[in-house]
Design a binder for these strands. Structure first.
Lengths: 226, 226
DNA sequence: TTAACAAAAGTAATTATTACTTTTAATAAT
DNA sequence: ATTATTAAAAGTAATAATTACTTTTGTTAA
């Protein structure tokens, strides 16, 4: 166990880019930092990696502690390790992104930690390199969403194709053609249409859909061309 | 500098998946490990991350030391951090992949370190989780090669379209149609045809091509559909 | 009863992909 | 010299996917 040289050890942290979707907007969960350096600035959802856990376990632990949610979708993004990236000291940070249903998580716990949901296109100034981390995570989310339907973790269980399209509009920051988007999504055969309509947005009403089953949102086929 | 808790520090290493191309084959540079654990097994090109360098700097330093090459193309793949991944102790490893011209590097230095080039489809048993690391790196190489022409770092300066196609065949482990591949590559407008032919493979001879300029292999357009 | 509205369906033009066939330019054999 | 041989290079036609639209539908509110 001790044949390796432990003199050159590093502090390793994780930072989670937590995406949520609410009121037609893609949002990010941010913390108001209450310790120096950069006290008062806004940061991603971070924490230390413990000696006997993987970085994945650390990222998951930190996020479930705050949101009260389990079975979160999380994916590794990239390591940030410039020696001066954190003015408080040399910290290597592994970035993850997570997708969560804003309605489902424990708001009280989030509030108690001083966290707040911000629309991705109206973010406050982020500390350190967290802005770059967010950009990298969004790019990874786009790659994910270009191959798999990402609605399951962000939308309520029952949703309209218009809602799904709006989520994709937010993720890719462009307007998808309603007819073509509908055609493509239905061709994937991953959603089941319910005999129930949302009448709040139009006179005709839009059918509610739900995901068929757990594995049906994993495609090999491309949904969005990026 | 000392407001962070340095009691829970980690050993951080890098492992490079070094791809080369030679004699029509995609190859991997591997080391015969001369320390326990797994002495005698084959490993990726690894090294420790020093206190005041980024993981990118560490990966680059390790590889230039061994090959004598500079200006290497390298890209971060993923962090491997399961507590028991290395039986010698808890080591967090950041994996990179690199593309190098086998003909151009310092063979003597490579040999002196006990390294050897192995065809990717005839690899020896790799130590620890290095096999998984290799798979992840190959997948990243495919994503890269699906958007950018990757020949520049792997092929000699002048090459035929048949050679380039064979490289892509190796990377994607499938046979691309000669006519369609040619059509696609030429349409990218990234190569310049020389008034010179390679007559070793056919009676007619195949024109040599070279890359136009440094930035011409960065496309937004898709080359290969994955 | 009708106007209004977005949902949902349909369409036609364009572009990209695929699976081929034909022609070409050189060498080697006759 | 002529011809056979070879893979390179060019060409083609069918199919599939994408795009930019138009039309129809079902429901509510005026």
């Amino acid at each position: 166990m001790l044949q390796y040289d432990f003199r050159q050890a590093h502090l390793v942290a994780i930072d989670n880019v937590v995406f949520g979707y609410d009121q037609g907007q893609l949002k990010l969960l941010l913390f108001e930092r209450n310790i120096e350096p950069s006290k008062g600035g806004w940061s991603l959802v971070g924490g230390w990696v413990k000696p006997d856990e993987s970085v994945e376990d650390a990222a998951y632990r930190v996020l479930t502690n705050i949101t009260g949610l389990s079975n979160l979708f999380m994916e590794q993004v990239e390591v940030f390790s410039k020696p001066d990236r954190d003015p408080g000291g040399r910290v290597i940070s592994v970035v993850f992104y997570a997708l969560i249903d804003i309605k489902a998580h424990d708001h009280q716990m989030v509030n108690q930690y001083g966290a707040k949901w911000w629309p991705v296109n109206k973010l406050p100034e982020l500390i350190f390199d967290h802005g770059v981390m967010k950009d990298a995570a969004l790019q990874r989310l786009r790659i994910k969403a270009s191959r798999d339907l990402v609605g399951r973790d962000l939308l309520p269980a029952e949703f309209t194709l218009t809602q799904l399209r709006n989520l994709y509009n937010c993720i890719f920051m462009k307007e998808f053609d309603p007819g073509n988007f509908r055609k493509k999504i239905i061709s994937l055969n991953a959603l089941r249409r319910l005999d129930k309509k949302d009448l709040s947005e139009s006179k005709k009403g839009a059918y509610y859909y739900k995901f068929k089953n757990k594995s049906a949102d994993q495609f090999t086929e491309r949904i969005i061309n990026i």
